[in-house]
């Protein structure tokens, strides 16, 4: 009896990770890394789902791994993809036949090249359009390219965070009333067609 109870309790716990309609994956470039967020719904993350990163055109697997407790998977952009400028296909397998994928285009990570080791101080070219204020100070301060990049990346991350969130939420949104009512309408429409063909002709 007790064994049965334990079984049911485990069943219910396991269940919370397992039952879902579909999985979502959303990946973006974060500096030199790519971050993939995997979820069943807004609150349910894919824990320990299998991730494969493939080269989009050739289908060669570049690396693989598992998502963490938050359903996240981070990896450095593979050198091969960077050299050949190929898109990355990120494939998520969440078990029970649930699978989804997301493609990170080469342009997204090629824009942020790897920081060269021991980068020299490259003076930032003064912008002729705006000579006054901060820009002027910046150019004379002799900031390294890496430092400028870091500042810009941080600012962009902060600005783009809500947009990332919006994309994620949009993807995770369940079906709305429109789809549901539309589907029911379809069913009754199909029955109308069936009735038309099956109906007996009136005498």
């Amino acid at each position: 009896m007790r064994a049965l109870l334990v079984f049911f309790l485990t069943a219910i716990m396991v269940h919370s990770l397992a039952l879902a309609h579909r999985v979502n994956i959303f990946a973006y470039v974060d500096g030199e890394e790519i971050v993939a967020e995997c979820s069943y719904s807004k609150s349910k993350r894919v824990i320990r789902g299998t991730i494969q990163v493939l080269e989009a055109d050739s289908g060669v697997m570049l690396l693989h791994g598992e998502t963490d407790e938050q359903g996240m998977f981070r990896f450095r952009v593979p050198e091969q993809a960077r050299q050949r400028g190929s898109d990355l296909r990120i494939l998520l397998q969440a078990g029970e036949g649930h699978q989804n994928e997301w493609t990170v285009e080469a342009a997204e990570f090629m824009a942020s090249p790897p920081t060269p080791v021991g980068s020299q101080a490259l003076p930032v070219a003064p912008n002729p359009a705006s000579q006054q204020g901060d820009v002027a100070t910046l150019s004379t301060a002799g900031l390294t390219r890496a430092e400028v990049e870091e500042v810009v990346n941080a600012a962009l991350d902060a600005k783009l965070a809500p947009i990332k969130r919006a994309v994620l939420e949009r993807q995770e949104k369940g079906p709305g009333l429109q789809e549901i009512l539309g589907g029911i309408g379809w069913i009754f429409g199909l029955v109308g067609v069936a009735a038309y063909f099956k109906g007996r002709p009136r005498v």
Binding site: I12, V14, H15, A18, L19, E96, G97
Partner: peptide
């Protein structure tokens, strides 16, 4: 149906069965 995929029959069957006991 999943028996011939990477996941295999037994693992899929276990997960599916446990998940669907309440259902």
């Amino acid at each position: 149906s999943l028996a011939f995929t990477a996941e295999g029959f037994l693992r899929a069957a276990q997960l599916l069965f446990l998940a669907h006991v309440p259902v």
